[in-house]
């Protein structure tokens, strides 16, 4: 179930006070701009690349254009993610755990378990009905179950990563991958190709492997929210997770943006406190 709060058509074209959140992830940099009413008025998502500062600046420029405002109106800015200390406009930092929690609670103000699947890490964050964290887990030092895993598998199958999402639902006999390890999983994929298995069945197995790794990390509370770049670009993973946990999952309007949005909301709070 996808939900959102953004209605860009009705927002005023100029904002004199804005709050910016920048999430520099291992794979993508995301910027969110909110106004004092906590409305998302601009955003941008770009590849992080190797120059985090330049990418964050470029992302900010795009988001500000969308918001119809400029840098001089930024009242406060918070950065998060791996490159959080490389963001020129930021006054302070917050962890991505805190920012994803904040962003998700903004969309779904209730007790939730957030599953965030990013480029190189996964997070499971539990919030109480006040939005306070009661616990969190990050993946161990391994790419299994992350976007990097999907990229590696797409490479082994010699298909564009963007094609994975449409292939998996066509599976008729899923191939199960047994290994934890990305390298060993790649070997298993090659073995299945050699044995004549259909690509659709292998791709579903790859998604299944990601979800299994996530489910091993922690238990979930009743209401589950999924976010992150993998969720945004592979909606099939939500369907599969719903099948495995036996209930529907909430997905915010911009699943890849929740960390940046949370950072922007922290900036707004910091400014008011």
């Amino acid at each position: 179930m996808t939900m959102g709060k953004t209605d860009m058509s009705e927002r005023p074209r100029t904002e004199s006070s804005i709050f910016v959140g920048t999430d520099v992830g291992s794979s993508r940099t995301k910027v969110a701009v909110v106004n004092p009413d906590k409305e998302l008025i601009g955003y941008s998502i770009e590849k992080s690349g190797t120059d985090f500062t330049a990418t964050a600046d470029a992302c900010l420029a795009t988001a500000l254009r969308m918001a119809g405002t400029n840098q001089s109106n930024i009242k406060a800015a918070v950065s998060t993610g791996y490159g959080r200390n490389n963001v020129t406009c930021a006054d302070s930092t917050k962890t991505e755990i805190g920012c994803h929690a904040k962003g998700c609670f903004y969309y779904f103000p209730q007790a939730i378990t957030v599953i965030d699947i990013g480029g190189q890490d996964n997070k499971i964050i539990k919030l109480d009905d006040h939005g306070h964290r009661t616990g969190f887990k990050m993946n161990r030092k391994c790419a299994a179950g992350t976007g990097a895993f999907l990229e590696e598998m797409a490479l082994r199958l010699d298909i564009p990563i963007d094609d994975l999402n449409d292939l998996a639902p066509k599976s008729t006999e899923m191939v199960k991958l047994g290994s934890f390890c990305t390298v060993f999983s790649a070997t298993e994929v090659l073995e299945n190709i050699r044995n004549g298995k259909r690509v659709e069945d292998i791709v579903k197995g790859i998604y299944f492997s990601v979800v299994k790794r996530i489910m091993e990390m922690d238990s979930f509370t009743e209401v589950v929210v999924m976010t992150g770049g993998v969720t945004a670009n592979n909606p099939y993973i939500v369907t599969l997770t719903e099948e495995l946990i036996g209930r529907s999952i909430l997905v915010p309007e911009h699943p890849q943006l929740t960390g940046a949005l949370g950072a922007a909301l922290f900036a707004l709070e910091n400014n008011c406190s």
Binding site: I97, G98, R133
Partner: peptide, 21 residues
């Protein structure tokens, strides 16, 4: 077997969690 960045993020997030309490 040690990821400094992961440890740092985990520790910072844990202290944020304690702050919320």
């Amino acid at each position: 077997l040690v990821s400094d960045e992961q440890m740092k993020t985990n520790v910072e997030a844990f202290i944020e969690q304690l702050e919320e309490r």
